[in-house]
Amino acid sequence: MHLAYPAVLAVLLFCTGLYGVLARRNAILVLMSVELMLNAVNLNLVAFDVWLRDTLHAGQALTLFTITIAAAEIGIGLAIVLLVHRNRGTSHIDRLRDLAETDRTATDSDEATVADATDNPVGSPAGDPAGRPTDTRLTRGEATA
């Protein structure tokens, strides 16, 4: 079998995963795309191992390890996503913009709504959305983390 077939397939799968990572909005879908990319690499590893006939079968061993690590990664990743969702009420990546250069206006609306969504107990209506301090969200986030 030509090595080019698995290699090209791996490249295309990798780039598909890449597109998913960059384009998807939902964090869980991003994780799926990461899995795709990892699988593309695994395919490459197996193909090259078979081609090289390595006595130690380093490629296959590494593939196994990668699969294991990917499983761990998906577990941790999902836990983080769930935590973010619980705290922020969203798992949309483009809403998690705390790294942004704050003009204090562009992000405040988001943060205010997030705070509204997460911090209000059941019975109390969001009576004063304007005066909602953002630090309640922060303290809660820190405490939970």
Partner: peptide
């Protein structure tokens, strides 16, 4: 809203 606004960039980079 499954895809973010980043889609064209993503497509270009991926292709």
């Amino acid at each position: 809203d499954a895809d973010s606004g980043n889609r064209p960039v993503a497509l270009a980079v991926a292709v």
